[in-house]
Computed example of a mutant assay.
Amino acid sequence: MDPSTITTLIFIGLGVLVLSVFFSFFPFMLWIAALASGVRISIIQLVAMRFRRVIPSRIVNPMIKASKAGLGLTTDQLESHFLAGGNVDRVVNALIAAQRADIELSFERTAAIDLAGRDVLTAVQMSVNPKVIETPVVAAMAKDGIEVRVRARVTVRANIDRLVGGAGEETIIARVGEGIVTTVGSADAHKKVLENPDDISKTVLGKGLDAGTAFEILSIDIADVDVGRNIGATLQTDQAEADKNIAQAKAEERRAMAVAKEQEMRAKVEEMRAKVVEAESQVPLAMAEALRTGNIGVMDYMNLKNIESDTKMRTSFGEDAVDNNNLDGDQ
């Protein structure tokens, strides 16, 4: 290839590279689009955005939409929100949607909601088109002990004035569940709840559950009501079983105390028998000592033996008579 041709190609390539770098830093096409849309912004302002680490397209494109909608925003407002970490495009879309829905909403308010982490565009849409939140199944027990399982649908509308600092959907669901439990629990019988489920809606809706939240509750509709377990009977059965176990434990305690008392009495009887045997073993020694010392004579000793023999004989007669009476009674 001719050296002049190669040189020409090199210069052309360098020229294209320089132009691409130049146009990427100096967004002429974006500037032309802004001018064509009626947005007065200079090329110097676009270059200055580069130095401020602001992406020009993130400012110019929303500015074009805002200008066409007649919002009257400035590039400084959009830049400050972008530098604060906000979503400029979403804020502008929310302002346009609010203007079309005749909702009074300022840029400062919208930017604050966006910086607070709320989806301001969705909030504006919810102000026009309410959202339905379905609660999980809430189980509650009426006064007759029957469980009632309720599922509700809550229709809410976003309250833009309370989006900053207001509680979310979880709080609404929790409060509605608490209201359902309270209403069902105050019913005398579960049949009344089944006959008039709209009483739950009226009672819960009248409690002002949307206070301090980012929503306004429009209606609470009962989607489903079912009868669950007989919790009262279950509790009574459990209580009876617990009482039976307590009674059994007390009876076992008394039996153990009786056994211990019986063993204690047996030990005392055995101790007394041992003492008697020990005392009886001392009698012959005492008699021998009395004879040796002359405290009693031989005739006294013989009379004592006769008395013992007579006592044993009478005892034997008495035992025989008792046995005969028992035999006669058996016959």
Rank of each mutant, 00 (worst) to 15 (best):
I180Q: 00
P62T: 11
R254Q: 09
L78F: 05
I220S: 00
S281N: 15
F317R: 09
G117Y: 01
R151V: 05
Q331Y: 14
R314S: 13
I217S: 02
R273D: 15
G185D: 01
V18L: 14
N324D: 14
P62D: 11
V276W: 05
A69L: 12
L95M: 13
N93G: 04
R149H: 04
D119E: 07
K68L: 14
R292V: 10
H81W: 00
K143Y: 03
G117V: 12
D102L: 12
N324P: 02
R52M: 11
E169M: 03
K268H: 14
F22G: 04
A101G: 05
M287E: 06
R100M: 07
I217H: 03
D199F: 00
R273Y: 13
M126G: 04
A111F: 02
M1N: 01
K191M: 05
N129A: 09
I55H: 12
S80K: 09
L35T: 10
L95D: 05
G318Q: 09
T234H: 14
P136H: 09
V18R: 03
L285Y: 06
F51V: 12
G318L: 10
L115D: 04
D2V: 04
D161A: 11
R254G: 00
V21M: 05
L218K: 08
I6N: 02
R162P: 01
A290V: 09
L105N: 03
G38C: 10
I246S: 07
G318M: 12
A258N: 05
R52T: 08
V227K: 07
E264G: 12
L30I: 08
K268T: 15
V54L: 10
A111C: 10
D328F: 03
S67A: 13
K143L: 06
S37Q: 12
A279T: 13
D114Q: 09
Q263I: 15
M126N: 11
P197D: 01
R50V: 01
L95S: 05
R40A: 13
I307T: 13
N295K: 15
I160N: 07
R157A: 12
N325D: 15
K268V: 15
G185H: 02
K312S: 10
T110A: 13
P136N: 10
S42H: 03
A174Q: 07
R153D: 01
V225Y: 07
G117Q: 04
S186P: 00
S57W: 00
A94M: 11
T110W: 09
T110F: 09
A214G: 02
M1V: 04
A240R: 11
M287S: 08
F51C: 06
D198H: 08
A66Y: 05
T293M: 12
L78G: 04
R273S: 14
A158W: 02
E270A: 15
G297Q: 10
N61E: 13
R40Q: 11
V124G: 01
M126Q: 14
A174C: 03
T8F: 03
A98P: 02
G294F: 02
L121C: 05
D76M: 07
E319G: 10
A258S: 07
R50M: 04
I133C: 00
T203N: 08
A142D: 02
Y301S: 13
R50I: 02
T203P: 03
A279F: 13
S201T: 02
